[in-house]
Design a protein around this nucleic acid. Structure first.
Lengths: 194, 194
DNA sequence: CCCCGTCGTTCCATAAACGGAACGTTTCGT
DNA sequence: ACGAAACGTTCCGTTTATGGAACGACGGGG
């Protein structure tokens, strides 16, 4: 499905498959001591729906998810956010250790422009290049910890804690971590609209 | 603006309705310069599906949402974040100054330094001064929308959309909004520790 | 022991979300 | 000016998510 040429940072929103969502939902229900039947009745959904949802054999509708999470009193995000403690699989450190993690903090829509604010983490040793974005897009990186080179390929700039780097991202650009420390940074993407 | 120890991303995922999700999805698509047809093709969903989804006339399936947001490169959460200017979660750390509204997005604790990332909103016409902070504290302001003067009193600098201003805040400093537009910005506070 | 209420799963007809095709419109390049 | 391509919307047959009902399993009380 995603086999196209799109290259994007690995979004750590805990995106999982239907089975994971089902497990999380069941855990949330059982924490509250609710039976499946009772939660289904309160949320106004069928028992079959909830049963299949928790088993991971159904592909729920957004309204169904809203109904259930609303009754559980949790935001929809709770179904996709990993509970603390099992954030990463212990037996697959390679994938987590070598990919950039980006979490979308905010999206700001304006009449003429949109901003996306990410918190990103580059593990030590990371080097990644990104293809050009549409014209006019700019990136604004504020470093919190660690040091890296970032910017357009060929004119990378060094940025350490507290530093701020910006560049037009309609050309190939990338990042390379310097030193043995992970880099934490805030990345602001600016998308002007015609 | 106090530094409470709560490390909690104030991610609005309010209870939006289908029309809101559709609007947000359309905005995310258009800021990338993608046509509806192309996004549908890349994401592997029907054009009718995407059209109805953006119009708010459909009740999408979780797999459909994953396909589309995955292709857009945003977490599912991006569809549920409120547009700026709306109220935030009731228990999120929101601080109201005279007229400034600041929301703590993130706290980063390091061995030697602490960062606090805020999203702030200065209503049009706002002018406010802040007393000095402890020595070594710096402020880093990234403007999202609107224009303002910010920095130490006596050497205010102008900053418009996309601009970045920083200053040492161990002296009296302040902000003054220019023009009739509200200012949205990201404010990073850096607290070095001995 | 038996009854009865509740548990979670499975079966089923209905409603609706889905993808493909056709449509009218707009935007190009020739 | 014309034709071709791409745009977003609408129509339509197929697929599938849904809620109600029926099911067997379990457990407590009379």
């Amino acid at each position: 499905m995603d086999s196209s040429a799109t290259n994007r940072p690995a979004m750590d929103d805990g995106t999982a498959d239907l089975a994971d969502v089902g497990r999380r939902l069941r855990a949330l229900r059982e924490e509250r001591g609710l039976s499946l039947s009772e939660l289904a009745r309160r949320a106004g959904v069928g028992k079959a729906t909830l049963s299949g949802l928790e088993a991971g054999t159904r592909n729920p509708t957004l309204e169904t998810l809203w109904a259930v999470t609303g009754e559980l009193g949790v935001p929809l995000t709770a179904l996709f956010t990993r509970p603390p403690g099992q954030s990463t699989e212990p037996d697959s450190p390679v994938f987590h250790g070598e990919s950039v993690e980006a979490t979308l903090l905010r999206v700001f829509d304006d009449e003429t422009v949109t901003y996306e604010l990410y918190q990103v983490r580059f593990p030590a040793g990371t080097a990644q290049t990104s293809p050009p974005h549409p014209p006019g897009v700019t990136e604004h990186l504020t470093v919190f910890a660690g040091t890296l080179l970032a910017g357009p390929i060929g004119s990378l700039r060094e940025a350490g804690p507290g530093d701020y780097v910006t560049w037009r991202s309609d050309v190939p650009h990338g990042y390379r971590v310097i030193g043995g420390q992970d880099v934490h940074a805030s990345l602001l993407l600016r998308y002007p609209r015609r």
